[in-house]
């Protein structure tokens, strides 16, 4: 399968925080959701993909090209949406379009006006008067109007009301009908992903924990409940995190098959939601 984004062994260190040995592939034609707690390194990773940050070590490739020699060609093919407004806030959408559109060879005014109509955005009002949702719609309209093959979004749903969040997710789904598009977006609202993501990449403490299809995650990860007497050094191996109470234990496993094999019917195995997975990783990975 073709990868649109490829991070190989990428490391980027800051004071007190770093992204370490990141190996991440984003597959062409799919929606990849990028999850992790606040401060896990999601925005840093996205900035590395956009060449806003340069890695200390490792390799970043988009569409098989590297930024050193093909920066413009790569960015022509990306539509970006950031968490905050990056457009000149004193300008109206019409002027912003006049600044942004000449940058792209494939800019399409017709598509842009379609989105403006669809999102009911005013062209002559300053961006700073827009609500958070309208600002998001405006960035989205700009990101989608140059036939980008890859849409990168940093927390697009943060701060949006549930109705618009759902509209946005529907819109993203519509975009994916064209099989050449790839969407990569970060979020900490995991319920967004159940609806549209094909792959989930999970980052924790600057390290990529996994990048698997929704299907694989459902096969591998599970919540396991049972009596504490079942736990010992050997059986604990298959758990990522164990929570013990007097009544028994609840644990997250990343190897459901092994757990079934070890415990059989003595434990209850439940589907782990993405939130369960994120929560159980919070205390750090304990392969106890």
């Amino acid at each position: 399968m073709e990868n649109v984004v490829e991070l190989k062994n990428v490391t980027k260190a800051f004071k007190g925080f770093s992204v370490k040995n990141m190996d991440l592939q984003v597959k062409k034609g799919f929606v990849t959701g990028f999850i992790g707690a606040n401060g896990a390194g999601k925005s840093t990773t996205i900035k590395l993909m956009m060449n806003l940050l340069k890695p200390d070590a490792g390799e970043v490739k988009l569409f098989g090209l590297d930024y050193k020699t093909h920066e413009k060609a790569i960015k022509e093919r990306i539509g970006f949406v950031y968490d905050g407004n990056v457009f000149f806030e004193g300008l109206n959408l019409k002027d912003i379009k006049r600044i942004v559109s000449p940058a792209y060879k494939n800019w399409d005014d017709i598509i842009f006006s379609e989105y403006i109509d669809k999102f009911q955005l005013p062209l002559h009002k300053a961006i700073k008067t827009f609500s958070k949702g309208m600002q998001m719609k405006a960035s989205l309209a700009i990101a989608l109007s140059h036939h980008a093959e890859l849409i990168i979004m940093d927390e697009p749903t943060a701060g949006l009301d549930p109705i618009f969040r759902r509209e946005l997710l529907n819109l993203l789904q519509e975009l994916m009908v064209d099989g050449n598009r790839t969407i990569f977006f970060s979020t900490h609202i995991t319920t967004d992903l159940d609806r549209i993501a094909d792959y989930i990449a999970f980052i924790h403490g600057g390290e990529l924990v996994f990048n698997q299809s929704i299907h694989e995650i459902a096969e591998n990860y599970a919540l396991v409940k049972g009596g504490v007497e079942l736990l010992d050094r050997d059986t604990e191996k298959d758990f990522v995190h164990i929570h013990r109470t007097s009544a028994g234990f609840q644990a997250l496993t990343d190897n459901m098959k092994a757990v079934k094999h070890t415990f059989g019917d003595m434990v209850v195995i439940e589907r782990a939601s993405l939130e369960d997975i994120m929560y159980n990783f919070k205390g750090g990975m304990h392969h106890v």
């Binding site: 956009m50 413009k72 960015k75 022509e76 905050g84 990056v86 940058a103 792209y104």
Partner: peptide, 18 residues
């Protein structure tokens, strides 16, 4: 006055400019 803002640099650098 505009360009010293971080957002402007993020925008310009995300567009197809080097």
């Amino acid at each position: 006055a505009y360009d010293e803002k971080a957002e402007t640099n993020i925008l310009l650098n995300s567009l197809p400019y080097t």
